[in-house]
Amino acid sequence: MNDQTWDAALKAARDAAEAAAEVIRHYWRCGVDVEIKSDATPVTIADREAEQAIRAILAPALPGAAIYGEEFGLDGSCDGLLWLVDPLDGTKSFVRRTPFFSTQIALMHRGELVLGVSSAPVYGETMWASVGGGTWFNGARVRVAPTSDMAQASMSTGNVKTLTADVRWQVLGGLIRDSNRIRGYGDFCHYHLLAQGGLDLVIESDVNILDIAALAVIVREAGGVFTDLEGQPLTLETRSVLAGTPAIHAQALRRLALC
């Protein structure tokens, strides 16, 4: 793969995110009926039409790449180039008229995440990044904060339900006590804030790789560290997140590793 191919792939991902945004904004204004999937999560016509719009742009952009989407599953093989698509991450928020939802598009090459686009259409925010190309927020380059002292750190949590029954719950409590302040922005929002210097640590459980793949590239290219709660790199099976500035991530990981 040459640089021109990667540039074309990033452009396609950004174009696909904008196409999805048009669909999502339309149904945000008009309202939608809600269905419940077999896993007890909601889905709407906005989810499905947004993914169709994304696939229509991504498929011809990289003809040899597989596409794994939230609503229509896997088309192709996971071994080489693989698009990871969540057309409407945060459907529960969408149907309750809470604007914490986004479109997530990432590209994985032989198991490594190489680019990501995160679009929050109601907020008017789009972030994108590619390996070696930095992180961009609405056209301006951004970086994580230089925070290195936990006492000065701002942290955010999301989807921590499973941690309440885990020994790491006590560690999370300690991190909260020792930090400067705690928020629970959730979804795309706290990763966008982390990548542009507004937060220093994000902890989540109960996630899916489609939710976080693009955001991982965005945080890393902004100078941050993005792993699971054990400090392991992301895979298709990843279910948790520890993301932060390098120093704060390292401190949090050392404390979690004692569990």
Rank of each mutant, 00 (worst) to 15 (best):
Y27M: 00
A106H: 12
F100D: 14
G76N: 04
A65V: 05
I57H: 10
L88E: 09
D39Y: 07
S77E: 03
A40V: 05
I36F: 09
W83T: 04
D79A: 14
R55F: 00
F94N: 14
A106T: 11
G31Q: 09
F72E: 14
A56F: 00
S77T: 09
D39F: 07
E70K: 10
I105T: 06
G73R: 05
G31W: 05
D89R: 12
E70V: 01
R96E: 14
A53N: 04
T103G: 08
F100Q: 14
A61Y: 03
A50E: 00
P99N: 13
G73D: 05
G80H: 11
L58F: 00
V32Q: 00
I67L: 14
T91F: 02
D47S: 03
G111W: 04
V34P: 09
I57M: 08
E70P: 12
L74E: 06
G111A: 03
T41A: 06
G31H: 08
E35H: 07
G111V: 05
E49N: 02
D75L: 09
S102V: 09
H109Y: 10
V85N: 08
G69C: 11
K92P: 10
V32S: 03
T91Q: 09
Y68G: 02
P87G: 12
L107E: 01
V43M: 09
A61G: 06
P63I: 03
I67N: 12
L62P: 04
A61W: 05
T44M: 07
E70C: 03
S77W: 00
P42L: 04
L113H: 11
T103C: 08
R97Q: 13
R25L: 15
D33S: 15
G31D: 03
L88I: 11
E112T: 15
K92F: 01
D86L: 05
E51L: 04
L74T: 04
G64Q: 11
F72C: 13
